[in-house]
Simulated scan of single mutants.
Amino acid sequence: MSANLSEADQKELNSFLDAEQAKARVQSSVHAFTERCWDQCMTGSIGARFGRGEEACLSNCVERFLDTSLFIVKKLESQRDLV
């Protein structure tokens, strides 16, 4: 099927697929840190409100996850620039 596409159409399709894969990776990361932080921070039963310390734990966990992810991305970009 790609043999019937022009070069411009193939580039557009590849860009679209790259964007969709990036979205899928972001969603996968969000799912992973949500599950990890929830398991780590939610110690009591589920109620109308978070228990003592659970809200702060969730916030800190998510912030650390995002900080770590940003650090890794920057490190990979710097390594790519060296190549």
Rank of each mutant, 00 (worst) to 15 (best):
E54C: 10
A8V: 04
S59E: 09
F33N: 00
E35Q: 10
E63A: 12
V83I: 09
Q21C: 13
G53K: 10
L58N: 08
V83A: 02
R25Q: 09
F50T: 00
G47H: 04
C57L: 01
A19Q: 14
C37P: 07
H31C: 07
E12D: 12
F65E: 02
N60G: 08
L5E: 12
A8Q: 10
W38A: 15
N4T: 13
E77D: 07
Q21I: 14
R49F: 13
K74F: 05
V83T: 01
S78A: 12
G44D: 11
L70R: 14
L13G: 14
E20V: 01
S45M: 11
I72C: 05
E63S: 11
V30S: 04
S2F: 07
L5Q: 11
Q10D: 05
W38N: 13
V26C: 11
V83Q: 06
R52E: 09
R52C: 04
D39S: 14
D18S: 15
E7H: 02
R36L: 12
Q21G: 11
S28Y: 03
Q27F: 11
M42P: 03
E63T: 10
R64D: 04
V26D: 15
R80K: 15
Q21W: 12
E63F: 10
T34H: 09
A19Y: 13
L70I: 13
C57K: 01
S28F: 03
E35G: 06
Q27W: 08
L66P: 06
A22W: 01
R80A: 15
I72P: 01
C41A: 02
L17I: 12
E35K: 09
G51H: 14
S28W: 03
A19P: 06
A56S: 09
F50L: 00
F33R: 00
V30W: 04
V30F: 08
F71D: 13
L13Q: 14
S59Q: 11
I46W: 12
S29C: 02
E35A: 05
E7V: 07
E55P: 02
D39L: 11
R52I: 08
N4R: 13
Q79L: 09
E77F: 00
E55V: 01
G44I: 06
K75F: 03
Q10M: 05
Q40C: 02
Q40S: 06
L13C: 10
Q79M: 07
L70A: 15
T68V: 02
H31T: 06
F16E: 08
K11N: 05
K23Q: 14
A56F: 09
V62E: 00
E77N: 04
D18P: 08
D81I: 03
S69A: 09
S45T: 13
E35R: 06
R25F: 02
N4G: 04
E35P: 05
K11G: 01
L82R: 11
N14I: 07
S28N: 01
E35Y: 02
A56Q: 12
R36I: 10
D81N: 06
V30K: 04
S28H: 02
Q79I: 05
N60H: 10
L58F: 12
K74N: 05
F65L: 01
N14C: 08
W38T: 14
A48Q: 08
K23I: 12
L82H: 07
